[in-house]
């Protein structure tokens, strides 16, 4: 049986991993490689590395970071996000060790690129990240670089070529960094009911994982800030969520000395 995934999310700004709050306030945590190794050791199902400044300042992907991550020899699947402009960027990111890529700014700037990415890497390797908030059962999609929003309804989705992405990550940006903050209405208000969803932003509590991962089209949950200070958080979440197919939490005992 296909398992629901617990994804460790590492947010990187100016080359440093940070705690992020509501897409506008950041606290430094340290070297990304250390946090990535921790997630690999603790048995996360996937690791998402998102560089939040790369598209904003038109820097392209952080290939140097990916090279450094590559030397770690991770045994956990890696998703890279940040600054991907075209298929060449995405293919190079994969060659450096990313298993999948996630795009956000591309959805605003050049959505037609999704098809080209898909033809190079396969649709399964492409994730669309959409920062959203919910108000009156309507989703508002944030262009974080410019701070403006659009209503994310069926008519907008009909012109976005999301058939070229395998999963959509619905990030509750306004509750990001807030314990227990994820808005339960967000996945319910997303018009594409058959698109597999990943959720991120303010997911900390067992009751949240239990409720949200029980939704048929929710295939994974991302946890960022809240894994940083709890060494056994992945194990605890997996053990406490019942009735949801999840892989047992394994420490990488054969790779790291515990």
């Amino acid at each position: 049986m296909l398992k629901k995934r617990l994804i460790g999310v590492i947010t990187i700004r100016h080359g440093w991993s940070v705690q992020s709050f509501g897409y506008n306030r950041y606290l430094p945590l340290g070297k990304p490689e250390v946090l990535i190794e921790n997630l690999d050791r603790w048995g996360a199902d996937e690791i998402l590395v998102q560089c939040v400044d790369r598209s904003k300042y038109d820097l392209g992907p952080d290939f140097e970071l990916l090279r450094r991550i590559g030397t770690l020899g991770l045994s956990t699947p890696l998703i890279y996000a940040g600054g991907i402009r075209h298929a060449t960027d995405a293919v190079f990111a994969v060659s450096l060790g990313a298993d999948r890529v996630s795009v956000d700014a591309m959805l605003w700037d050049s959505p037609h690129m999704l098809e080209i990415l898909s033809r190079e890497l396969g649709t399964q390797a492409i994730i669309a990240n959409m920062p959203v908030r919910q108000h009156n059962h309507m989703l508002y999609w944030l262009n974080y670089r410019f701070g403006h929003e659009r209503i994310l309804d069926a008519s907008l989705l009909s012109v976005l070529p999301l058939e070229w992405v395998s999963e959509v990550m619905l990030t509750d940006w306004s509750h990001e960094g807030m314990a227990g903050g994820y808005d339960y209405q967000i996945p319910l208000c997303f018009p594409l009911t058959d698109k597999p969803l990943l959720l991120f932003g303010g997911l900390t509590e067992t009751t949240q994982f239990q409720r949200l991962l029980s939704l048929t089209n929710v295939v994974g949950a991302g946890v960022g800030n809240f894994l940083c200070y709890k060494e056994h958080a992945i194990q605890q979440i997996k053990q406490n969520v019942v009735g949801v197919p999840m892989r047992a939490a394994h420490y990488a005992e054969d790779k790291y000395i515990l």
Binding site: G73, L74, V94, S95, G97, K255
Partner: peptide, 15 residues
């Protein structure tokens, strides 16, 4: 052959 994640595969075997 220029396609894929050679680095990840290499490091798994080296490990």
């Amino acid at each position: 052959y220029g396609v894929g994640n050679h680095a990840s595969v290499q490091r798994a075997f080296q490990a």
